[in-house]
Measured scan of single mutants.
Amino acid sequence: KKSYVLIKVKNPKTKETHTIVVPEENLEEVLKALASQPNVKVVDIERFP
């Protein structure tokens, strides 16, 4: 059974918020990819039960 993680990201320029759902096993690479985006800020990470 896969567990999923909900990542909320915000664009500081446009103030838009997006929610991305990723499998927990991919969380680290997704966070690394997001960290390299200049106008993306991770605001929240939630685990799915």
Rank of each mutant, 00 (worst) to 15 (best):
I20V: 04
H18R: 14
P38W: 03
Q37R: 14
R47W: 13
P38I: 07
P12R: 15
E29K: 10
P12G: 13
P12Q: 15
E46F: 15
K8L: 11
V5C: 05
V42E: 02
K41A: 08
T14V: 02
E28Q: 11
E46P: 02
E46I: 14
V21H: 03
V42K: 01
V5M: 06
S3W: 15
E46V: 15
K1L: 12
H18E: 05
K10A: 09
V9L: 15
D44V: 12
A35K: 12
L27C: 03
K32T: 06
P12L: 15
V40M: 13
K2D: 05
K2N: 06
V21A: 05
F48S: 05
E29F: 13
S3Y: 15
V21R: 07
K32A: 11
K15P: 03
A33V: 10
E46L: 15
R47M: 07
N11F: 09
P12K: 15
T17D: 03
P38C: 10
V9S: 01
T17Y: 12
L31E: 01
L6M: 11
E29H: 08
E25Q: 06
K2S: 07
N39Q: 06
E46C: 14
P23T: 08
V40L: 12
S36H: 08
E46T: 14
E24W: 11
N26D: 13
K1G: 12
K32P: 00
R47N: 05
N26F: 12
L27D: 00
V40P: 02
L27F: 05
T19C: 11
L31V: 03
E29T: 09
F48R: 05
P12N: 15
L31G: 00
S36L: 14
E24Y: 10
V43R: 02
E24I: 09
H18Y: 15
I45C: 08
N11W: 08
Q37S: 09
L31I: 04
K1S: 11
K1E: 10
H18D: 04
Y4W: 13
A35H: 09
P49Q: 11
E29I: 09
P23H: 11
K2L: 08
N11H: 06
K10F: 15
T19G: 04
K8P: 00
I7C: 01
N39R: 05
V43W: 03
K41E: 13
V9D: 00
K10D: 04
P38N: 07
T17Q: 08
N26A: 09
E29G: 07
V43F: 04
V21T: 06
A35M: 13
V9T: 05
D44M: 14
R47Q: 05
E24H: 05
K15H: 12
L34A: 01
V22M: 03
E28G: 08
E16N: 06
S3N: 08
K10V: 13
T14C: 06
P49I: 10
N26E: 10
Y4S: 02
A33P: 00
K15C: 12
Y4A: 02
K32C: 08
V21F: 10
V43A: 03
V30L: 07
K8N: 03
S3C: 11
L31Y: 02
H18Q: 06
K15I: 03
K2A: 07
P23M: 11
E46M: 14
V5L: 06
K10G: 04
V9P: 00
T19N: 07
V22H: 01
K13I: 15
T14E: 03
E25W: 07
K15W: 11
T19F: 15
A33E: 06
E16C: 15
V22R: 01
V22E: 01
K32H: 07
L34V: 03
V40C: 11
E28S: 08
P49C: 12
S3L: 12
F48P: 05
N26P: 00
V5E: 00
K41Q: 13
L27A: 04
K8M: 09
A35P: 01
F48W: 13
Q37M: 12
E25L: 04
T14G: 03
D44T: 15
S3P: 08
Y4G: 01
I20D: 00
A33I: 13
N39H: 10
N39E: 07
E28P: 07
N39F: 09
K8H: 13
K8G: 02
V42I: 11
Q37L: 12
K13R: 12
V40W: 13
E46Q: 14
K15M: 13
K41G: 03
L27G: 01
N39W: 11
P12A: 14
D44G: 14
T17P: 03
I20E: 01
K32V: 05
H18W: 15
S36P: 02
N11C: 10
P38E: 07
V9G: 00
Y4I: 03
Y4K: 03
V43D: 03
V40I: 10
A35N: 06
P49H: 11
K1A: 11
L6A: 06
N26R: 13
T14I: 02
K32W: 13
R47K: 08
I7T: 00
E28Y: 11
I20F: 15
S36W: 07
T19L: 10
F48C: 14
K15A: 07
P23V: 07
R47G: 04
K10H: 14
V21S: 05
L6I: 09
V5I: 05
Y4N: 02
P23E: 10
P38F: 05
E28C: 14
K15Q: 13
K1C: 14
T17I: 12
Q37V: 08
K1V: 09
V43C: 06
N11P: 01
L27H: 02
L6K: 07
I45N: 01
V21Y: 11
K2M: 09
A33D: 05
L6N: 03
V9Q: 01
I7M: 02
V43T: 06
S36T: 08
E28F: 12
D44W: 15
V9I: 09
E24L: 09
K1Y: 11
V21G: 02
V30R: 03
K15V: 03
E16L: 10
P49A: 08
L27R: 02
I7S: 00
E16W: 14
K13H: 12
L6S: 04
T17C: 11
P49K: 07
E25Y: 05
L27P: 00
R47Y: 13
V43Y: 06
V22Y: 02
S36M: 14
I45V: 07
P38S: 10
L31P: 00
T14F: 04
V43H: 03
V9M: 10
V9N: 00
V40H: 05
T19D: 05
L27S: 02
L34K: 00
Q37T: 09
E46R: 15
V43L: 10
V5K: 01
S36A: 12
K32I: 07
H18I: 12
L27I: 05
V30Y: 07
P12C: 15
S3G: 10
V30C: 07
P49R: 06
V5T: 03
Q37Y: 12
I7D: 00
N26C: 12
P38R: 10
V5P: 00
E25A: 08
K15L: 12
L34P: 00
L31A: 01
K1P: 12
E29V: 10
